[in-house]
């Protein structure tokens, strides 16, 4: 288990997102407060259009909030809706991303896709190669290192994407419907992988999902409805 496990790595206070104004105003995300700790897997569920993706893009530092503050590892990143840190650097070092479609770079093989997350942050090639191979081998992809994404199955692609999201040991991993394109068995495998990786790498994993079959594998479930985020009580 990673020594970071249990510490708060993500903290949102009063984060909101409003599109338009006057009669066209849409409150995509109402003021939201929320924390995530290293090592935990948090599922965010809710109907389409409820604001899940908006929340994900705000936490992913892709889409600025209208108001509110966001801290990663206690360091202010957004204060009162304004970026106070270098978002590109924060994305590179503190965040990992996994998508419904793996979105691997098609001209890089499995190993290179994973190495990329390290090398864009200046890690030398020999180090990135070793770490990528170790991680992919631990995910059962030791024999698929040289395969291009087009030659990998959906499950293999998703495991490579998870490796890419985890390799640089980010504080927060954001996953948008990562099991939607997988069958039930592979979906559970992916969620187990998130859980194991979160503990091993000391990251908080936020999973936006419609897949209720895998919710028993997460630590917390948050529900989003009409832009309001609330803790869902265990069934």
């Amino acid at each position: 288990m990673n020594e970071r496990v249990g510490t708060t790595v993500l903290s949102l206070t009063g984060i909101s997102k409003v599109y338009g104004e006057g009669p066209t105003r849409v409150d995509a995300l109402r003021p939201t407060a929320f924390e995530a700790r290293a090592g935990e897997v948090v599922a965010i569920v809710g109907p389409s259009g409820s604001g899940k993706s908006t929340l994900l893009t705000i936490i992913g530092l892709i889409n600025p909030p209208t108001a509110g503050s966001l801290l990663i590892n206690g360091e202010p990143v957004i204060t009162d809706g304004v970026a106070v840190a270098n978002l590109t650097t924060m994305r590179r070092r503190e965040l990992g991303y996994v998508f419904q479609r793996s979105n691997l770079i098609p001209f890089l093989n499995a190993e290179e896709n994973v190495r990329l997350a390290l090398e864009i942050d200046g890690v030398p090639a020999h180090q990135s190669r070793t770490r990528a191979r170790e991680l992919l081998e631990s995910l059962g992809l030791g024999k698929r290192l040289a395969a291009l994404p087009g030659k990998l199955s959906g499950g293999e692609q998703q495991r490579v994407a998870i490796a890419r999201a985890m390799i640089h040991q980010p504080s927060v991993v954001l996953a948008d419907e990562p099991t939607a394109a997988l069958d039930s068995g592979r979906g559970r495998q992916v969620m187990e992988l998130f859980r194991d990786s979160a503990h091993a790498h000391g990251a908080a994993v936020l999973v936006v999902t419609h897949d209720h079959r895998t919710l028993d594998l997460v630590d917390r479930v948050l529900e989003m409805e009409d832009g309001v985020l609330s803790e869902k009580q265990p069934a």
């Binding site: 994305r91 590179r92 070092r93 991303y97 979105n103 770079i105 997350a117 864009i120």
Partner: peptide, 16 residues
């Protein structure tokens, strides 16, 4: 374009 968007999302510097 999708790969380039992904590179940007991953935090690639502009010089990459």
């Amino acid at each position: 374009m999708l790969s380039l968007s992904l590179l940007k999302l991953l935090g690639a510097k502009q010089r990459v």
